[in-house]
Design a protein around this nucleic acid. Structure first.
Length: 263
DNA sequence: AGGACGCCCTGTTCGC
DNA sequence: TGCGAACAGGGCGTCC
């Protein structure tokens, strides 16, 4: 499920594979995924154009179009990009396919159709209009604290709120809280400085480490909680049974012994 | 106002 | 063994 590290891996992949090539044709197989709902806008913006650069904000990926505007990609829960998909898998399952004049292609797959694609004039304006928080990897410790402490909800709900900080989803929120030894329900409003430092550092460490391994969980240490998100999963630190609960409708794994509720 | 919840969507897993 | 139910969750709309 694409969170910040996954989207950063997608960005890196597309940055090296789809820039500076003339777009020959665009095929929108799933119009329902288009933001604003009009495939014509997408076709008009992309046909004959060239992609110039990439940008990521939270879980959103943007590809700059030479004639102006940006192609926006959001991957929902099951989305992913593939270059030259027709050589490896049935391309007719792609929700969006872009063919380049040089024979290469870009496909956007999303089995569950929870992602979104669209054209935006300006990235900063899009972020403002959606009221998205700053990208979580771009903030200082002070800003991190300032944004999060305003939330009256539990720590996990606050970390996952894209309006507070953009980029953290369900799996990495659990991981960060596990490594910071904080309960998903801990209130952040009254947290003291050392705990803020711990939480900030855990956030940066987890996300940057995941980016280093191109968001492939198999390459992350076995001591990470994310390997143990399963029925009867055990805490990699103390070996006790992990507990689950729902936070904002999402399944939350935590160790009741190692993750204290209060800060 | 802001937090909790339902819905979208479909492939996979679960349980009887 | 088979099949329907439950589950997975990012983001948004609705309701309280």
């Amino acid at each position: 499920m694409p969170e910040l590290p996954d989207v950063e891996a997608f960005r890196h992949y597309l940055h090296s594979r789809v820039l500076r090539q003339r777009i020959e044709s665009v095929d929108v197989a799933a119009p329902g995924l288009i933001m604003g709902g009009d495939p014509k806008t997408l076709l008009r913006a992309l046909r004959g154009a060239v992609l110039l650069s990439t940008h990521r904000h939270g879980k959103y990926l943007f590809l700059e179009i030479d004639r102006g505007g940006w192609l926006l990609l959001h991957f929902g829960m099951t989305g992913y990009p593939v270059v030259d998909a027709n050589k490896q898998r049935p391309s007719d399952r792609a929700r969006l396919r872009i063919r380049f004049a040089n024979g290469h292609s870009f496909s956007y797959f999303d089995p569950r159709k929870l992602g979104r694609i669209g054209i935006v004039d300006d990235v900063a304006e899009f972020i403002r209009s959606r009221n998205l928080g700053p990208d979580v990897l771009s903030v200082t410790e002070d800003l991190f604290k300032e944004r999060l402490k305003k939330k009256a909800t539990g720590a996990k709900a606050a970390l996952m709120d894209q309006h507070v900080l953009a980029g953290i989803g369900n799996v990495y929120a659990d991981e960060i809280l596990f490594q910071a030894r904080l309960s998903p329900l801990a209130r952040l409003s009254g947290v003291k400085s050392p705990t803020w430092r711990t939480l900030y550092r855990a956030t940066r460490k987890v996300l940057s480490r995941a980016i280093e391994v191109r968001a492939n969980p198999m390459s992350l240490p076995r001591t990470y909680l994310l390997h143990h998100r399963e029925r009867n999963g055990r805490c990699p630190r103390c070996g006790r049974s992990l507990q689950t609960m729902k936070v904002g409708g999402r399944t939350t794994y935590y160790c009741p012994r190692d993750q204290r509720k209060a800060a």
